[in-house]
Design a protein around this nucleic acid. Structure first.
Lengths: 212, 212
DNA sequence: CTGTATCTCAGGGTTTACCCCGATAAAAAA
DNA sequence: TTTTTTATCGGGGTAAACCCTGAGATACAG
């Protein structure tokens, strides 16, 4: 029987190197390709015979979400499992939307990863327990579609994060203070926070504002 | 020549497994012990002949800071290198204080880790470039002794970042609301911000509070 | 012993945030 | 075309944040 040909895309060299050795020890697995760069992966995608890709999310140049989407456009039958450090709410929904068949946290052990790879290779899906919990939480907590932020709201979040008061924001956008306050309240509802402090942490966590 | 006997303490199974294989491939290195648990490490410390420990910081039960301190009490000649995912300011200062000889980020490659292990084994210190930059940044950005935050202030920053109001913080710390407000004002002066929004961004930027 | 830093608390004030309620007009979607 | 979403604005209120001043207790270093 043929080995499952695996590609590993992860910018953490130490982790990727180790993972390669771990997977090659497993009967029936073979790491055919590995790279630190989503861009290289897309370029060589047609030149290497792989069945499965283990994809990190946070990478420079092209992140895992973009790389997953583009790879599946080129090779729709490729099976991709997301491998992420954080059980980050915003990221995994984007990854699932991009078309991953599974999601495994890096803190998993090799048996869990092995099971995930076998399951997905046989046509199934595999999502870590933590991810499933988060998903269940999401659906009870905030039904995502209705809670999307509008353009104006995102604009105002940025200004709030810059430390501006509602009055200052109203001046900047040439609108009334009351309008700004209305947006503020609506944002609080959508973000499920109760004050500016909570909002800013939420905004940074969900990448509506970037520090540094 | 004897191999360098290495212990790996890290609760991320996949990473630890991989790291073990990577290090065992290196000429002169041998992973003599590995565990996911700082507690186990301390218990078996006297029964295993090791020269060097690679210690994760964030672990359940006993974290890397506590494990490092206690291990060096028992075995002062043990050389410990911190291995961390984040370039977390608050953590690495505590780790250095606990007595680590080096600090390597998990996103490093195996050559950097190899160099770190050899350097520390020969009696030197090794700190990743990112860590040194952070240290330098700290000293250039806020050199004045007067602007150092006190313990109480750092404590309150964390609570503010969690979205608590001054009243809630006063209850949590069993002090008056007025005291909390005084601390708040003093923090604003030191951070050079004018409201909570600015403070939180500043706190995250300077790693007094960590998102994710 | 004396200055300095830290932590504590208070009075009394202004400003801002936050929460109800309701409303209109335009744009987008159904 | 009807409905929904988005962006706009207001009244009127309470709670919280923020500012200024002053001050007592303790602990620590010079």
């Amino acid at each position: 029987m043929m080995d499952i040909q695996i590609a590993v895309i992860d910018d953490h060299d130490l982790f990727r190197e180790g993972l390669k050795l771990v997977l090659n020890q497993v009967e029936g697995f073979h790491v055919a390709y590995d790279t630190s760069n989503g861009y290289h992966f897309l370029e060589t995608l047609n030149n290497i015979p792989i069945d499965m890709a283990l994809m990190d999310i946070e990478m420079p140049v092209i992140n895992g979400i973009q790389a997953t989407g583009k790879a599946l456009q080129v090779k729709p039958d490729l099976k991709i499992i997301a491998l992420s450090m954080f059980s980050d709410t915003s990221h995994y929904t984007q990854m699932i939307h991009a078309g991953v068949r599974g999601f495994v946290l890096k803190k998993a052990n090799k048996f869990e990863l092995e099971q995930a790879i076998r399951t997905v290779h046989q046509g199934g899906n595999y999502f870590s327990q933590e991810i499933l919990k988060k998903l269940a939480f999401r659906y009870t907590d905030q039904p995502s579609d209705r809670d999307q932020l509008t353009g104006r709201e995102i604009e105002i979040i940025a200004l709030i994060c810059q430390g501006l008061t509602s009055y200052e924001i109203s001046g900047q956008l040439h609108i009334s203070v009351k309008t700004v306050e209305t947006h503020r309240s609506n944002i609080f509802l959508k973000a499920n926070v109760k004050n500016t402090a909570g909002l800013i942490v939420w905004a940074i966590k969900n990448q509506y504002y970037t520090v540094q």
